[in-house]
Simulated assay, not measured.
Amino acid sequence: MTQPMSAPFWKTKTLAEMSPEEWESLCDGCGRCCLVKLEDEDTGKIHFTNLACKLLDRQTCRCSDYANRSARVPDCVRLTPENVSELNWLPDSCAYRRLARGQTLAWWHPLVSGRKASVAEAGISVRGQVRSEEGVGESEYEDHLWKLPRARKPVSS
């Protein structure tokens, strides 16, 4: 007799119950949270730019110095189960934000698709679409406002 398959951890555990490995695996590597963001002082609305943190490897969409990021980029925010629902600048596509809102992971998330490439195929990854913030003054940030692309529909086989 075969054992019934257990549900994936992100469907059975809260963010606070996840192991460090499970928590880290929720990051899909899109790079969106590493973009420079501007907040409208009047409305509080967050606007993304096409400028990435100087530590973002723009080809892999991973931090080039993850272990030391807080020391090298003092305003880098470490995501925790306690702060995820409070961070209004996390993109709607973010797995941490989705799970905190009671949603499930998107079809393109590597834990669902089984493939890291699905993030780029869905149009979620910023790979090849952004530049480094280095050399761009804060007074120029508004010149780099960028609308995040929406995820493409999955390709039917």
Rank of each mutant, 00 (worst) to 15 (best):
S125M: 00
R101K: 15
L111M: 13
W108D: 01
V119G: 00
R101V: 00
G128W: 08
W107G: 06
A100W: 09
G114A: 10
R127M: 06
V126D: 02
V126T: 15
S113V: 02
A106W: 03
L105P: 13
A106R: 09
G114D: 13
H109G: 06
W107K: 02
I124P: 02
G102L: 07
E121A: 14
T104C: 04
V126P: 05
G123A: 07
E121Q: 15
G128K: 12
S125G: 06
K116V: 00
H109N: 09
S113Y: 02
W107H: 14
S118G: 05
E121R: 13
T104P: 00
L99I: 14
G123Q: 11
S113N: 12
S118H: 03
A117R: 11
A117T: 14
H109V: 01
R101H: 12
Q103K: 15
G102D: 12
R101C: 04
L111D: 14
G123D: 10
S113D: 13
Q103C: 06
A122Q: 05
T104D: 15
W107P: 07
E121Y: 02
L105Q: 14
S118N: 05
S118A: 15
A106S: 14
L105W: 08
I124R: 01
W108K: 00
E121I: 01
L105N: 14
H109W: 03
S113L: 01
G123C: 07
T104H: 14
S118W: 01
Q103H: 15
A100V: 08
L99Y: 10
K116H: 08
G123H: 10
L105S: 13
R101W: 06
K116R: 14
E121W: 01
G128A: 07
R115P: 02
W107D: 14
R101E: 15
S125L: 05
I124T: 12
K116M: 06
A117G: 08
A120E: 15
A106I: 00
A106E: 13
V126K: 03
V112F: 07
V119M: 03
G102H: 13
P110E: 13
L99F: 09
V126S: 02
K116E: 11
K116P: 06
V126G: 02
A117Y: 03
I124E: 08
R127N: 06
S113A: 15
G114F: 09
G102A: 09
E121S: 07
E121N: 11
Q103E: 15
A122W: 01
W108G: 00
G114N: 12
Q103T: 03
S125V: 00
V112N: 10
A117S: 15
G128H: 10
R101M: 11
A120M: 06
V126E: 05
A106H: 11
A100I: 07
A120W: 04
T104L: 11
A117K: 13
S118P: 01
V119D: 00
W108L: 04
G114R: 10
G128N: 12
H109F: 01
S118R: 10
R127D: 03
P110Q: 11
E121K: 12
G123T: 12
A122C: 04
R115W: 02
A122G: 04
G123S: 09
T104F: 04
A122H: 03
